[in-house]
Design a protein around this nucleic acid. Structure first.
Lengths: 124, 124
DNA sequence: TGACATCGTTTACGCGTGTAATCAATACTG
DNA sequence: CAGTATTGATTACACGCGTAAACGATGTCA
């Protein structure tokens, strides 16, 4: 609940962990360093900061650590989304959704799913 | 096209200007200082930085300046949205839209409008 | 057990940002 | 014309972040 701020680069790391945790530092490095052009040190720094922020914990496993998230992804998504909504769309949900709906070509399944959600909405 | 970065606080100022430009510094101050708890100096600093970034221009009008945006709001919305989409939803449009659809209660008009957009999508 | 490798910790540094005071130029007023 | 007020420019400072090297502790292999 600590309303921490996860930076741009840190989201990369967190997204990975939320999907595949727990992971050793080396696994994280292997997964994110290359594609982002980060040195291993850089990744270590991020892990460290994320622990300090209280977003990650670790268990000692032999010589190395195994990291695990300790905040829910949904909470962070919530924060970030709220902030984005306010900043860019001035709190106008409908505008935001309209924007993204127009922004991409969805496939039939996706459209069906989105319709379904709208139906639910309406049912309220 | 300069792909500038507009900070959180700066968006406040830009949103105002995009809606009501051109505006004198004082007008901007009057509009955003109070609600954000910013001192006039703070707002001036932001205007200055925005000019430096090439997002704003100004015309001299007597003793004071009149500011005007010189990048399209849509471009900035585009950048910011893209970055948010990647960071938080890892590029998954459908997930993003689904999230925001579930996040709020839309009214009947909004739902109708969103349905309409979906229909258009499908028509492609 | 000693040397080497491994892995986490500390330190570093420049830049952007939030926040704002102070300085300087210019215009208005008496 | 001089003093005052207004308004923009300059300077300031701490903190977060991207980026990474250096350091230290610990475990492993010979």
């Amino acid at each position: 609940m600590a309303q921490v701020t996860i930076s741009d680069a840190e989201w990369q790391v967190m997204n990975l962990l939320w999907e595949r945790e727990p992971l050793a530092a080396q696994d994280v490095i292997d997964a994110v360093a290359e594609p982002n052009g980060w040195s291993p040190s850089t990744v270590k720094t991020m892990l460290h900061r994320l622990v300090k922020k209280g977003v990650l914990t670790f268990d000692k496993s032999g010589k190395s650590y195994v990291y695990r998230s300790c905040v829910a992804r949904t909470d962070c998504v919530q924060n970030e989304s709220q902030s984005f909504l306010q900043r860019v769309f001035e709190g106008e949900h409908a505008n935001l959704v309209a924007y993204f709906l127009r922004d991409t070509q969805f496939n039939a399944d996706e459209i069906a799913e989105l319709r379904r959600i709208l139906d639910e909405q309406e049912a309220q």
